[in-house]
């Protein structure tokens, strides 16, 4: 056998399982979903067809873009707050902590919650934020409040708090990695040239770590965009997000065609965000070279 043929077989042998996996579990399902999005709802279920009625409904019925806007708003807030909490923490770990052991410990402290089920962590916030929860009990006990308030739970605030808590580790990890990679010589050179620390941060550290921020924020944004647990557990009557609409269309409404069309739209939104973030991360890398 020729060397080239053998090489080809080897490549194929290595690549075929992941390719097969992607084909069976990703591309074929996407294709099925895409096909369903043209089907026709017909009581009590639906039937194959080729028509654009489902997409038209998404545009004409206000409820869908209302929910899309709300979902985007909450996702942006979660992404932003996660960065505001996670990035300074990563910065602190990389530049301010001198002991490797302390640094490793603090890093682990942030990562460890990821080992606990998401559902459990979201549920815990209920017991903290509830009318008779830990926060209210404390506020009443300390005299700050006369009576427990119900403003903490079952609204968009509690959803943002819960989701931010859950996605902060996803910011810390890439931000830490990108901050650690910044050559210290650059920062020292800046210092030697008499640039103030804040200016050094703005013109060197922040731009060079932006790929990490972008990566983390993208993860937080996209995962929030597809979340349906937080609205169900800690969201109130105004907490309905796009994934809840999807579960409802595939569930109670039994309108898989409409659900499929909405899934395709959601997929496109998320893919756009990912490719935008990818461009940003690439531009960050170029600056380093």
């Amino acid at each position: 056998m020729k060397l080239q043929t053998r090489k080809r077989i080897a490549t194929l042998g290595v690549l075929s399982p992941p390719v097969l996996w992607a084909l069976i579990f990703l591309f074929i399902p996407y294709l099925i979903m895409f096909t369903y999005s043209f089907y026709l709802k017909k009581f009590p279920t639906f039937e194959p067809a080729f028509q654009f009625g489902n997409y038209a409904q998404l545009v004409t019925d206000a409820q869908y873009y209302q929910v899309l806007f709300r979902t985007a708003k909450i996702s942006i807030m979660v992404g932003l707050f996660s960065v505001l909490l996670g990035y300074p923490f990563a910065y602190f770990l990389v530049f301010k902590i001198k002991s490797d052991r302390v640094r490793a410990m603090l890093y682990m402290a942030v990562i460890v919650p990821l080992w606990v089920s998401y559902l459990l962590r979201a549920y815990t916030w209920k017991t903290i934020l509830g009318s008779e929860g830990i926060l209210n009990s404390f506020l009443v006990w300390s005299g700050i409040l006369d009576a427990p308030t119900d403003i903490f739970l079952y609204n968009q605030f509690s959803m943002v708090v819960t989701l931010t808590y859950i996605y902060v580790p996803f910011i810390v990890m890439p931000a830490y990695a990108s901050l650690e990679k910044i050559p210290r010589s650059l920062i020292e050179a800046s210092k030697d040239l008499g640039v103030r620390p804040l200016r050094t941060f703005w013109s060197i550290t922040l731009p060079l770590s932006s790929p990490g921020i972008a990566a983390g924020m993208t993860i937080a944004f996209c995962l929030t965009f597809g979340d349906f647990i937080a609205p169900a557990l800690v969201g109130g009557p105004n907490g309905f997000m796009i994934a809840n609409v999807l579960t409802s269309q595939f569930g109670a409404a039994l309108n898989w065609p409409l659900g499929a069309a909405l899934s395709i739209v959601t997929l496109l939104i998320v893919l756009t965000i990912i490719s935008l973030s990818d461009t940003l991360q690439r531009s960050g890398k170029l600056e380093l070279e």
Binding site: P44, Q63, Q66, R70, N238, N244, V245, A253
Partner: peptide
């Protein structure tokens, strides 16, 4: 067949701001 209208209305309520 009216069921889907009821379901849709209820979804619209939950979706509303």
């Amino acid at each position: 067949a009216r069921l889907e209208h009821y379901t849709n209305i209820w979804n619209a309520v939950k979706a509303a701001n």
